[in-house]
Simulated assay, not measured.
Amino acid sequence: MGSANDIQKPWIETPLIESATLSKLAGCRIFLKMDLLQPSGSFKSRGVGNFIHANLKSHSQTHPPHFYISSGGNAGLAAVRASQDLNCKCTVVVPHSTKPFMINKLHQAGATEVIQHGASWFEADTHLREQFIIPEHNVDGANVYVPPFDHPLVWEGASSMIDEIARQLPAREGEGEGGGGTNAFAADAVICSVGGGGLFNGTFELASNPPPGVEVTSVVRSDAEAARGVVLLADETRLQVELACGVSVEVAVGKELKKAIPDLNPETRVVVVVCGGSNVSAEIVAGYREQLAAGWE
């Protein structure tokens, strides 16, 4: 195994594109941050990849690390892809509720082993820690626990997205070249999905008491509305995302955006984080389209 310092980080800079169709529907300028193009198919490549990369830099080369993560989906896939890129082993523990579709993806991505245990992520995670991480089962310290969302290194990796957006946004009138040319962030709002909290630095405190100059609006939508976003994005970009991502697209073109930004106008800039997700297929998207046409709400 080579030095981690000689290996590129296991995620990429993704494009930021302005969507004429979504902008027309929303009544403002909609920019799509295309993180579904990450190696694992989701933004999780950034945070989980950053954790694994940083761990390799500090880990003893005497015992190459074997990474372990509990996840029924995207975080596990991100860990496997990052480990493959960095020539390491990675085992994923998933709950029994995980679909065969995702288990197959984990195997195909190169997981050392996929273990099913428990009825929930919590039970899978507890099993992982007890069987592979506690000292009596990890004598040489080579087994490394990868937090799927709750760790500063994961948040740091996810935050790289905002640095990219700041560089990629076109300059406002009167600014220098590039939207990141001044201290002002060249967008009025960022829409992102929050599950485990990886896209919001993982903490409830930041949502409840955001830093000065930041306003946070929480929006909860139905699965049917999220599916509308999935179908809309597929039609607009010919790309597929899962429900947890599609909901951000739906919010961007719906009434919630106008409520959150009362002075919304054609020059308002909104970035939608297209966070991706691998639990989707052409058949699943087609099924959403049929259900919506049949009156799913």
Rank of each mutant, 00 (worst) to 15 (best):
P65N: 04
Q8D: 07
A224I: 06
F200Y: 11
I261N: 04
P39Q: 08
G27V: 03
I103E: 04
E225Y: 07
E18Y: 05
S40G: 10
A171D: 03
L199R: 03
P147S: 14
V93Q: 00
I17L: 15
P39T: 05
E250N: 13
K33W: 03
G47H: 00
L22R: 09
P39D: 06
V114I: 03
G176S: 13
V230Q: 01
V92D: 00
D150Q: 08
A82R: 03
S45Q: 02
P212N: 10
N50A: 04
F122G: 12
S281G: 07
M161V: 14
K99T: 15
E13N: 14
R269H: 08
Q240G: 10
V272C: 07
E13Y: 06
N74R: 06
N209F: 11
V92L: 01
R228Q: 11
A244L: 07
R172S: 07
L37T: 12
E225K: 09
V146F: 00
V271L: 05
Q8S: 12
N279P: 02
S58A: 15
P39S: 12
G276T: 11
A166T: 04
C275I: 06
Q131F: 01
H127L: 02
Q240C: 12
I284E: 07
W296A: 10
H151A: 02
P95I: 05
I134W: 03
V280C: 13
H137M: 07
A78M: 09
Q168W: 04
A119T: 10
E177H: 14
E267M: 08
L37S: 11
I7A: 11
T98D: 05
R172E: 10
S159R: 12
P148Y: 00
I115E: 00
I191L: 11
E256G: 04
K33G: 01
H66C: 09
